[in-house]
Simulated scan of single mutants.
Amino acid sequence: MTIHQGSCHCGRIRFEVDGTIDSGLSCNCSICQRKGSLLWFVPRAALRLQTPESDTARYTFNKHVIQHVFCPTCGIHPYGEGKGPNGDPMAAINIRCIEGIDLAAVPVHHFDGRSK
């Protein structure tokens, strides 16, 4: 299993995440379209913050089931937290925030979140 390093733009939020990035999800819901995230879903236990959680800010909307985590300094959204379809805690990692990744090599799946 690979350990990936990631951060927001200014580095205030840093993290490690375990797993193989086999695809990314591009969603067209109102928030994802605006922030331009490319998401990779992992069990929440695979994500380890390297900086204090108090350095993050959170935003929820609509059904308030996903916590969109962002940096209050630079505004970048490195990940979100919620529950997977089976009810287990999950994290949606913005792979654009992972160091050294070749985004062109990641297959992208499109999700119509606008219609949900």
Rank of each mutant, 00 (worst) to 15 (best):
P72W: 07
Y59M: 02
S23V: 00
G24I: 04
V69W: 02
F15L: 06
R14I: 00
D22L: 10
S7I: 02
C74T: 10
H64V: 04
A92F: 11
H109E: 13
P43W: 10
R34W: 01
H68I: 03
L39G: 01
I31R: 08
T51D: 12
K83V: 10
H68M: 02
C97N: 06
N94T: 08
C27G: 10
A46R: 07
G19W: 05
S7N: 11
L49T: 02
E53S: 12
V106C: 03
G24S: 11
V65A: 10
Q5Y: 11
N28T: 08
R58G: 15
D22T: 15
D88Q: 15
I13S: 01
K35S: 02
S23A: 14
H4W: 09
H4K: 03
K35G: 00
G84Q: 13
C29G: 05
V108M: 06
F70C: 03
G11I: 03
P43T: 14
I93M: 02
E16G: 00
R96A: 04
S7A: 13
K35V: 14
C97K: 09
V108Y: 03
L25N: 13
G84R: 14
V65P: 00
P72F: 04
D102H: 05
Y79M: 14
C27D: 11
N94H: 08
V69T: 12
D18C: 08
H9F: 03
V106R: 06
H110E: 12
D22I: 09
E16V: 01
Q5H: 15
P85W: 06
T51W: 09
G84P: 05
S30R: 12
C74L: 04
E81F: 11
T73W: 00
A57G: 10
F70A: 04
D112E: 11
F61R: 04
D102S: 10
T51E: 10
H4Q: 04
L38R: 11
M90A: 14
T51M: 11
R44H: 02
V69E: 03
I93Y: 06
V17K: 12
L25H: 13
D112Q: 04
K83R: 15
T60V: 14
F15C: 01
Q33R: 15
V65L: 15
Y79G: 06
Q67S: 15
R48H: 15
I93W: 05
I101Y: 09
Q5E: 13
T2D: 09
I95H: 06
T2P: 14
H68G: 08
I101P: 02
E99G: 06
D88Y: 09
E53L: 10
C29D: 06
H9Y: 09
C32N: 03
R58S: 15
I93F: 01
N28P: 01
L25S: 13
C71E: 01
W40K: 07
N62R: 14
L103M: 08
D22Y: 07
R12A: 14
V42C: 03
I3P: 00
A57N: 14
C32G: 05
S26P: 00
F111I: 11
Q5M: 04
A45S: 15
K83T: 11
T56L: 02
K35M: 08
L39D: 13
L103E: 09
C29I: 06
G82I: 01
L49W: 06
M90G: 08
I101M: 07
C97V: 05
S54W: 08
G36S: 01
R58K: 14
A91C: 08
R96Q: 12
A91L: 06
I101D: 07
D102A: 07
D18T: 15
E53D: 14
K63P: 00
S37G: 13
G24H: 08
